[in-house]
């Protein structure tokens, strides 16, 4: 009996398989071979979170419409890279980029032109005489970036400024497009070490009048930077060239309006006593006077002063300085 049941089930299965096999050959339809490849790389869960009716539809859209972005939240980063290769175009929401907000002006810092009472939407607020905040480059703080973020990665803090959650941000750029004041920028995930939180193009005089934390173009940062990474141009906030910046934080210290921020914390230097011959080069190159000691005796680093810029590590002839673990 059991055998018969198994045979029947197997038989039906076999018949189905045969029919399907024949059908597959008879009704074979040629499709773009890339579509199959893309489809294989997609998670295949048909969850519909991308807004399309399943992975196949999304794969089709990726091929057909060159504006389709990688909106699949479940896909692995490597697969996105592979799909980019297949499609021969870069997909925007690749990992590795991160949004960064270029304004530090809280309600207390920046003057208001008028009292705004409309919808809590930056883009709508921008329509009324260009936004209530007196600085045309300042964050309106109504949270449009928070609303448009599909990954819940940007939030308006208590000071009414947006903060990016580094863990969650995928660099999709939705907030960058949505921000009516264009103060959100995308930067490579691991590159920025220091950032100028201001993009004002007003004259320094104007900035000083309306904002207590806007870049006033005083050039202090440009002069102090040992790596020529900061440039200040006329009527434009200071800019940091991220490829040159080591994150030493000297500019952060000298900035009179506190508009430059350290994004990462650097490891401090430490001197290996047995290698140091007391040549004093480190104390000569150090911008903050952190190495202490007497000539020809091993030096020590004053941890309170050291910022971890790493200049001494490069200059030490004996390779006696290391980053503290």
């Amino acid at each position: 009996m059991t055998l018969l049941a198994a045979a029947l089930l197997g038989g039906i299965g076999l018949v189905c398989a045969l029919v399907l096999g024949v059908a597959a050959m008879t009704f074979a339809v040629e499709m773009d071979p890339r579509e199959k490849l893309v489809l294989d790389l997609l998670p295949g869960a048909n969850c519909g979170a991308c807004g399309y009716a399943g992975c196949a539809a999304f794969a089709h859209a990726l091929l057909e419409n060159p504006e389709t972005e990688m909106v699949c939240p479940a896909i692995h980063e490597n697969d996105v890279k592979k799909i980019s290769e297949i499609l021969e175009r870069k997909l925007a929401s690749l990992g590795g980029m991160i949004a960064s907000v270029c304004c530090k002006g809280t309600v207390k810092d920046v003057a208001d032109n008028y009292i705004y009472e409309g919808p809590l939407e930056c883009r709508a607020a921008q329509l009324i005489a260009g936004g209530s905040k007196a600085c045309a480059y300042g964050c309106l703080g109504l949270g449009t970036c928070e609303q448009v973020c599909p990954f819940d990665a940007i939030h308006i803090g208590e000071d009414h400024l947006p903060y990016v959650d580094k863990e969650k941000c995928t660099g999709c750029g939705k907030c960058v497009i949505a921000c009516p004041r264009h103060i959100i920028r995308l930067a490579p995930f691991d590159l920025p070490k220091c950032e100028v939180r201001c993009i004002s193009k007003d004259s320094p005089k104007e900035v000083k009048k309306i904002c207590s934390t806007g870049c006033i173009g005083c050039m202090a940062c440009e002069q102090v930077c040992p790596f020529n990474a900061v440039t200040v141009m006329k009527n434009s906030a200071a800019r940091i060239t991220h490829t040159k910046c080591t994150g030493c934080g000297l500019c952060v210290k000298v900035c009179p309006v506190d508009v430059i921020e350290s994004v990462i914390e650097l490891k401090k230097a430490s001197i290996l006593k047995d290698k140091c011959n007391g040549c004093s080069i480190c104390s000569q190159v150090c911008p903050v006077d952190a190495p202490k000691g007497e000539l020809k005796n091993p030096y020590t680093i004053d941890e309170a002063k050291c910022m971890g810029c790493g200049i001494c590590i490069d200059k030490c002839p004996k390779k006696a300085i290391e980053k503290r673990l």
């Binding site: 919808p119 939407e121 709508a124 329509l127 497009i177």
Partner: peptide, 21 residues
């Protein structure tokens, strides 16, 4: 409700999307 303001907001979004895409 600031209905006209909402409508202007929508119109601006439409215009921006048009110029973007």
């Amino acid at each position: 409700r600031p209905i006209k303001h909402f409508i202007r907001h929508l119109k601006t979004l439409e215009r921006e999307a048009k110029s973007l895409y």
